[in-house]
């Protein structure tokens, strides 16, 4: 029953979010990396070595694009219901808290994946010989991991800080995922982007890039990066669900 309810939530959320405004945001997100790769190709930037192209694509899609998409679709899941005063209608249903949040989580992941995979595919096509199936496959898997992990992170931020949600998420992203993840210290190992960069260098065998910037790409094996990502995603989701289950979110004005 839980899976059925989550699927119903995903269908409802997808149907409700198919608006012109959201569609335009999606198109702009998809076009952003494509435009940059297109400009570089137009400037005849050499396709060899492949690493700079791959790192640029990784930075544009699984990092920046994924984060932007999920900032828009995962962070405000609770705040929009509270501001729209529709939370009360959901919270009074037996599955209105946990299953609805999970449904919204998967909806955000679907939106993000649809945009990032589409953009990655077109970019790889534009990159010609610098691209290829292996880079496409690695990028798609990184997009999937990034979407699930970052969506759980932003979901937690959204349910803890349901006021000024986006501002808090942007601040966290800047400070931790882009600031701390480049700091050569133990703390950067606790960021999602560090793990994704590590997987990129491992799966593409970019030893040169890794030895030049070990604090950026790490030196751990892939299974460890994957394990930490899965663990982080699970812990963040459990914290989110616990918070939603026990919180007294404002339902409406007091009368």
């Amino acid at each position: 029953m839980i899976v059925r309810v989550i699927w119903e939530v995903v269908k409802f959320e997808l149907a409700r979010s198919l608006t012109f405004g959201r569609g335009m945001i999606w198109v702009l997100l998809v076009l952003f990396p494509i435009a940059l790769v297109g400009i570089l190709r137009g400037l005849d930037v050499p396709l060899e070595p492949v690493e700079p192209w791959g790192i640029m694509l990784y930075f544009l899609v699984p990092e920046v694009m994924c984060l932007l998409a999920l900032l828009l679709w995962a962070t405000p899941v609770i705040s929009t219901e509270i501001e729209g005063q529709t939370w009360g209608y959901l919270a009074l249903r037996p599955t209105g808290r946990l299953e609805v949040i999970l449904g919204k989580y998967f909806t955000a992941v679907i939106w993000s994946l649809a945009a990032t995979i589409c953009s990655t595919t077109i970019c790889i096509f534009l990159m010609g010989s610098a691209g290829g199936f292996r880079l496409w496959m690695v990028m798609v898997v990184l997009c999937i991991l990034s979407s699930f992990a970052h969506a759980s992170l932003y979901l937690l931020i959204g349910v803890v800080f349901h006021k000024r949600t986006i501002v808090t998420a942007v601040f966290y992203t800047g400070a931790v995922e882009y600031g701390l993840s480049f700091v050569p210290a133990v703390a950067n190992k606790m960021t999602i982007n560090y793990r994704l960069r590590g997987l990129l260098s491992n799966w593409m065998d970019w030893e040169e890039a890794r030895s030049a910037a070990e604090n950026v790409f790490g030196s751990e094996p892939s299974w460890m990066h994957l394990g930490v990502l899965v663990l982080m995603t699970s812990v963040l989701l459990v914290c989110t669900l616990a918070r939603v289950r026990w919180s007294e979110f404002p339902t409406q004005q007091v009368g």
Binding site: M1, V5, E8, V9, F12, A15, R16, L18, T19, G84, Q85, T86, G88, Y89, L90, L92, R93, P94, T95, G96, E99, V100, T251, Q252, Q253, G255
Partner: peptide, 29 residues
């Protein structure tokens, strides 16, 4: 066993009443 009609308005502009009510009923299992 409870049904609630809150005082607050519904703000799902592009969803029909049938979709909305059906969705909320499905959340009861």
């Amino acid at each position: 066993r409870l049904g609630l009609c809150p005082a607050t308005d519904v703000l799902y502009p592009n969803v029909s009443a049938r979709q909305w009510v059906s969705y909320l009923v499905s959340l009861h299992g």
